[in-house]
Design a binder for these strands. Structure first.
Length: 577
DNA sequence: ATATAACGCGCG
DNA sequence: AAAGCGCGCGTTATAT
């Protein structure tokens, strides 16, 4: 068996006058001759190289370059996204020689300006500056930044985790663009049916739905306040207190503590109000077009490396509306989520054999019960979440110490991360994404709390800020490494799906676009969950790809680890629950 | 009048 | 049921 040939590296950049250039990097790391061409030929040129040998494309920003290619029917296998990788390397503790990289401030971008959920631009760069980011796109800048990033990675004592992270993050960029291009197949009839079932039929513009009118009247009656506006929490709060209900806010968990005839209708009203304002008919009108909901995904949008999204609250779609996610005719949805991803990732990082055993092949929480740590699954879950989040009070505070006895290695890892954070230090994920350092304000609070004439209040403030930061760094290592596992899963999965045979043109999911609509493709991603949209005849094959990719992700990040990552997987026409 | 903060609640 | 982490977004209240 011979090693696969290392893919060639092709750098893309803009030139003056709407021209584009491609430059291949040789085995010695030196850029070769520049091949110039008109922008209109970009898709054709990329497709040609892709067919010839799947190079790694190096470009300024996937969100800028890739949507146009997808719209032209061109997928790429792999890339290196300079914007995403710059953000990681800038603060990476493993990078010992990053001065040049950090000096290149043009690559320090804020949040990406979203493309407003529009369908991908017909041609590259013809969208207003609205889409993509502000990083430089021209060829020489691109080459220079690529060289800086290679040098920065090479300066690490062990560059391989950072190389893996750069590849995974870049693959995430490709997936994000592909998710937006494909969109979520959205059944507006089902969505409307769910809304009508809860709220009553769609009311006229500016009118409240019938059910909210009824339930609102019940609330006002129960409070004896016929004019009360239920949409103003402060007014509702005053009314509740007038009615003798001792609450300090109108949040549902506090309301639920009390026994009064107003509680039930008020909670019901809040639920209806939330559904209407967040995902009501206005949401459908704004976000669903031609059977697709196309949010903007922002890889690396969260400090821990998790994704954020923009447009319609894609990562917060209520489970209630999941049935509106429905496959095209003749297609199926393959939905899979990882059971207890974060604690499993922790067990793998820490090499905690006992925790690996507790989860192997089964529900991790049940395994913890069987190990005799706690009596019930609910307790196990509270304890584990408490360990990951740094709970010190209530049930979690009582249960976490038991975990510490049975899983000392796992607990030592998160406890150490917390201690480092409390001291003002930084921590990093398995592949080397480093937590942001504390800001100047945090440091000032610590200084003020530590001087000889500090007041008790100063000391308490400093201790509290320390503990707050400790909980952040404690969670950072686990949440961030779980995000890396998920990236590896996505990256491997998209390649497996791309190798499944295409369906004939007449069976294609045309709304998913020319590059993706003819074979199984990702339609949704949410931290530890994917949904693949697949032709019925290839759904089983796609499901196996999802499973195989999960196994591959575990092996890639944690070679030889006894920790497994079981999936809950279903093949259905519409998303359940 | 408009920008910002705070709240509350949806998701993991 | 919330608590302990990370978010986005629509709302009202408050500051400018």
């Amino acid at each position: 068996m011979t090693a696969a040939p290392r893919p060639t590296t092709c750098v893309l950049g803009r030139l003056a006058g709407g021209r584009v250039a491609l430059c291949e990097i040789g085995g010695d790391g030196e850029p070769g001759p520049r091949q110039e061409f008109d922008e209109e030929r970009l898709a054709e040129v990329v497709a040609g190289h892709e067919a010839a040998g799947t190079p790694r494309w190096v470009w300024s920003d996937t969100a800028t370059w890739y949507p146009g290619l997808l719209a032209a029917g061109v997928r790429v296998e792999r890339c290196h996204d300079l914007r995403l990788v710059h953000t990681i390397l800038q603060h990476a503790a493993a990078v010992t020689d990053g001065a040049a990289l950090r000096a290149a401030t043009a690559w320090e971008t804020g949040p990406v300006v979203p493309a407003e959920g529009r369908p991908p631009a017909a041609t590259l760069f013809d969208v207003a500056p609205a889409a993509g980011s502000a990083v430089p796109h021209d060829l020489e800048e691109t080459l220079a930044e690529h060289a800086r990033q290679q040098a920065a990675i090479a300066s690490a004592a062990d560059p391989s985790p950072l190389r893996l992270l750069a590849a995974a993050e870049s693959a995430g960029g490709l997936v994000a663009a592909e998710l937006q291009a494909a969109g979520m197949p959205w059944d507006v009839v089902e969505h409307d049916r769910i809304l009508a079932e809860q709220l009553g039929p769609r009311p006229g513009h500016g009118q409240p739905p019938a059910r909210m009118v009824e339930v609102g009247a019940q609330v006002r009656t129960a409070l004896g306040d016929p004019m009360l506006s239920l949409d103003s929490p402060p007014r509702v709060l005053k009314a509740l207190r007038r009615a003798g209900i001792d609450v300090s806010s109108t949040s549902q968990w506090e309301l639920a503590e009390h026994d009064h005839p107003v509680i039930e209708p008020l909670l019901r009203y809040k639920k209806l109000s939330r559904l209407l304002t967040a995902n009501g008919w206005a949401w459908i009108d704004e976000w669903v077009h031609e059977g697709r909901y196309r949010p903007v995904y922002l890889p690396g949008g969260v400090v821990t490396g998790r994704w954020a999204s923009n447009g319609g609250g894609a990562l917060q779609i209520p489970r209630q509306l999941r049935p509106a996610l429905r496959a095209d005719p003749g297609w199926m949805l393959v939905g899979a989520d990882v059971s207890q991803l974060e604690p499993r990732v922790l067990a793998a990082m820490a090499g905690d054999r006992a925790m690996a055993d507790a989860g192997r092949g089964k529900d991790l929480y049940s395994g913890i019960v069987e190990a005799g740590v706690v009596a019930t699954r609910a307790e196990a879950k509270v304890a584990v979440l408490g360990a990951l989040y740094g709970s010190t009070t209530g049930d979690a505070g009582r249960l976490v110490p038991r975990l510490r006895r049975t899983f000392p290695r796992a607990m030592a890892l998160v406890d150490e991360a917390a201690a480092t954070g409390e001291r003002g230090g930084t921590v990093h994920t398995w592949l080397g994404r480093t937590s942001p350092p504390p800001g100047p304000e945090w440091a000032a609070v610590q200084t003020r709390g530590g001087v000889v004439d500090a007041t008790t209040a100063d000391e308490e403030r400093a201790r509290r800020a320390g503990r707050d930061r400790g909980r952040f760094t404690r969670n950072f290592v686990v949440q961030g490494t779980a995000a890396e596992w998920a990236l590896a899963w996505l990256a491997d999965l998209r390649l497996r799906l791309s190798r499944i045979a295409p369906v004939p043109e007449e069976h294609a999911a045309t709304a998913s676009g020319p590059a993706l609509g003819n074979r199984p493709h990702l339609a949704f991603f949410l931290h530890d969950e994917v949904i693949v949209h697949a032709p019925r005849e290839h759904a089983e094959e796609a499901a196996q790809a999802v499973r195989d990719a999960a196994d591959a992700a575990g092996r890639l990040l944690f070679p030889g680890s006894p920790v497994d990552f079981p999936l809950d997987l279903t093949i259905t026409e519409r998303s359940a629950k």
